[in-house]
Write a protein that binds this DNA or RNA. Structure first.
Lengths: 133, 133
DNA sequence: AGTATTATTGCAAATTAGTTGCAATATGTC
DNA sequence: GACATATTGCAACTAATTTGCAATAATACT
């Protein structure tokens, strides 16, 4: 479902900042500042505080999720149920690549062996990208 | 190998703050502030800035590693090669539990299918602990 | 053991990421 | 189009972490 209907459905307003923020998001994890800069380059002025507030709303709506890659800040990606991936983070240049690992159902595994009920997980790999090796 | 020899070996000084910080660390991930507070309770006064500097050194020495659990701050644990574990983080109460999953060698798997050379990975599970379900 | 050298610490100030209060503005409703 | 109120921009604030620098403490040297 698209963001306009989702917002309307839940009684939130469809505003320009929200629509523009969604447009710059993708499968690549961006920080709030990077999102803000991306909008700036498109000559769209949205306050950084509003970026944070929109992201917070999108996370609550499960349209966006956040990850932390050891940099001391959050990064945001669009939720995409058909593209289950993890990240490869280069320790040297910081490049972030994706890996798909559909074959392992961690969550089920954990739920079988523990009383903890898994909602989701984050799996991040740190090492050296091809160029930095 | 113990921290005293490791420090000496690399030409770092064996100081009281460093030794005391190592003593409060364990397999449980603590934030810098929590480490500082733990020292305080033992009547050991170490400045928070020194806690950060020691942790940074320990991470570089691979004695300690840091993880981020979506709270906007880092947590630190002792490196323990014989205890390969991941975390179960309760979305409601924030409790952190460990799970062992020795059986899957992710790193090897990734190294087989990608040009990225894995050094280590972080796997975090988010959901509800037994009490919060 | 005492002194010299210099790494490390504590303290204060600075920086970075994220949050909050509030008046101005824009969205959806009638 | 006017009304009600959710959302935004702006500025100030908080939390986590970093940095500069003088004081202190750890190691080396005698």
């Amino acid at each position: 479902m698209n963001i306009v209907s989702l917002l309307k459905e839940k009684g939130f307003r469809v505003t320009k900042p929200r629509l523009e923020i969604i447009k710059v998001l993708s499968n690549y994890p961006l920080s709030a500042e990077e999102i803000h800069d991306a909008l700036d380059k498109k000559n769209i002025r949205v306050d950084l505080a509003s970026v944070y507030r929109s992201l917070e709303l999108f996370v609550k709506m499960s349209v966006v999720y956040s990850i932390e890659l050891g940099e001391g800040k959050k990064r945001y990606e669009l939720v995409n149920k058909n593209y289950h991936h993890h990240h490869l983070i280069c320790n040297k240049c910081g490049t972030i690549e994706d890996v798909e690992m559909n074959e392992i159902n961690f969550d089920k595994k954990i739920n079988e062996k523990s009383k903890f009920l898994i909602d989701h997980h984050h799996l991040e790999f740190f090492g050296l990208c091809q160029d930095c090796q």
